[in-house]
Design a binder for these strands. Structure first.
Lengths: 347, 347
DNA sequence: CTGTTAGCGCTTTCAT
DNA sequence: ATGAAAGCGCTAACAG
């Protein structure tokens, strides 16, 4: 028995009043018999006004349900109180936690967050950033397709911080690649692997650094490394790589990310292979589904959430958002079931 | 070249000028010797100005790299060109396709999208909506924790459309529950199941409707149904439910969503059970990892992306964003490997 | 400590 | 077709 909307709103302000117009500082100024500028001061510069009147003003504001209009405030100050996070692909689970981390510190600071997707295209990214610049106080750029120079140029208008990839001219927050990749390669080597493939993503900056580092590490440990290219960081692209992985004869693969690794696992299972006997797989990121995979994915756990929070913290801080810096967060290897000794070696 | 610089006919703005300040309509007005209001008209009201001057103005604007300041525009018009999407939990993969769908139509329309998380708490949701109202042209509310009356009240300030759950007083875009659940129950019944559990999420509106419908459907098909409560729509919560599922003696379970189903699968595997022999599982949503699970998850494929696009389309449309309506999108059963005949029945 | 006075950049009558 | 002028709601000197 749902009580049928007895159409009566006795206490509440009626439609006219509510939807009429949001109260402004003029309304509250008039109500307390003071000047609008005094109201503005009372509400925003604590202490710079008489305690009694401040109290009176706050009371009136509360009573009227006053909320400052962010647009009106942005005009004279140039600050909008909103920040943007621009990333290649919203649906990539890797970005979930990062966005959430950023969103939380933004909200905690009373800021709002705009999310914008660039479809992994450099020109759309540039256009997006330029379009956003007039309405935000700063941008968080994730896995940018733009090079350092371009980003630095853009950053002259509004501060930009790079998250999850490093841009030398900007403040950047990144995972400790050396730490993670060293652990991964050592793990493989300890298991007995001597020939591994890196499943990478073309010329992307973030990918190049992973590849270079992996190469150095492998060579110094007498492991031969081949690069196999996938054309997007997706499950399907990973699945497509199976043939080439098998053809290469490697006993282990390091995937660009967990999505690619997932694809490889799926394709392998589809082909009747059992892992890690056929070959070992190490992912990257440790997205939520990594532990759900069968075999559960051994992967590098990237502190996405913290990358998001740290990046947003530095973006919000006027002292730090303009000076190049580098925050490096730990990248740990999580060993699960997708890695094992290569077949042919004694157990 | 020209020795006489007094005429001040600069070639291109140099770096200083560029990064100094964004050009305004005043800059371009001065440059072409016209009034700012004419510039405004030329740029925004096609046709309401002389074709030649409009051309001249556009050229100057392009040359200066002019971009209208959204804040300044918002003040007199009351329209900011931004919309907000507010949802309980950003990290739930279910919401990502939805966000992306909404983001794409917003961007295509030249609007920007603000994303805000409510931590699945009604009071935070209300506060978030109220805070956002002064700076957006409308809100997309996903899986709201607020009831219809509250939402309707809030919607008097700025249009609100409900996505993925229905609010009778608002325009809503939802999946066809009846269609999906009927297919799910029929599938189970055809397989021979007569006793199933619904793994639901407390008093959440969206959950209640699923439960009611499932109950009706089950009864009319002579299937006994029990409800087992999980306290959050997460993998861990799903895993926690395993004991109760086993204790209930059912041969199949309908999970609130794929995350919960994933948890159940994981726990079952951990307990040494093999599915679907021990029991069948049907998920909800069809998130990307559903097909990656082992056994691959049979689930109801929710058109999240389209829910996002349709919802944003109606939100953008001034004709439709104020009138209650209901857009119902198909919800299809995707049969994979997590459902099978109950043991004891002839193959 | 509070009031006055200008704007911020843009839109929008109302004149011309 | 274009110009002049008055705001939108708020902040920020500068006075008093």
């Amino acid at each position: 028995m749902s009580p049928d909307e007895t159409h009566a709103s006795p206490e509440l302000p009626n439609d006219e009043e509510r939807s009429a117009r949001r109260p402004t500082i003029y309304d509250i100024a008039q109500r307390v018999g003071l000047n609008p500028s005094t109201v503005s001061r009372a509400l925003n510069k604590p202490g710079r006004t008489n305690a009694a009147t401040e109290e009176k003003i706050r009371a009136a504001a509360a009573e009227l349900g006053y909320r400052a209009n962010p647009m009106a405030r942005a005009l004279p100050t140039g600050r909008s109180g909103t920040f943007a996070i621009v990333l290649p692909d919203i649906t990539n689970p890797v970005h979930f936690e990062l966005i959430r981390g950023a969103e939380q510190v933004a909200r905690a600071g009373g800021f709002t967050l705009v999310v914008s997707e660039t479809e992994a295209a450099a020109d759309i990214e540039r256009e997006t950033i330029e379009a956003l610049q007039s309405s935000v106080d700063g941008l968080l750029v994730v896995a940018s397709r733009l090079d350092d120079a371009a980003l630095a140029d853009l950053a002259r208008v509004k501060p930009i911080v790079a998250a999850n990839h490093s841009a030398p001219s900007l403040p950047s927050v990144i995972p400790d690649l050396a730490m993670g990749l060293t652990a991964a390669i050592d793990h493989l080597r300890d298991l007995g692997h001597r020939s591994v493939a890196y499943l990478g993503l073309g010329g992307l900056q973030i990918n190049r650094s992973r590849w270079e580092l992996t190469l150095d590490l492998s060579m110094s440990r007498d492991i031969s490394l081949v690069e196999i290219a996938v054309d997007s960081p997706t499950v399907d692209a990973g699945a497509d790589a199976l043939r080439r992985v098998r053809a290469s004869g490697v006993t282990a693969v390091l995937a660009y990310n967990d999505l690619v690794a997932h694809g490889l696992l799926r394709a392998a299972r589809g082909a009747g292979l059992t892992l890690p006997e056929a070959f070992s797989v190490i992912g990257f990121d440790d997205i939520f589904s990594a532990e759900l995979a069968v075999p559960a994915l051994t992967t590098l756990h990237s502190p996405l959430r913290e990358i998001g929070t740290r990046a947003m913290e530095t973006l919000i801080d006027p002292e730090r958002n303009r000076v190049p810096s580098k925050v490096v967060l730990p990248l740990d290897l999580v060993v699960r079931e997708s890695t094992g000794r290569p077949v042919g070696l004694p157990q």
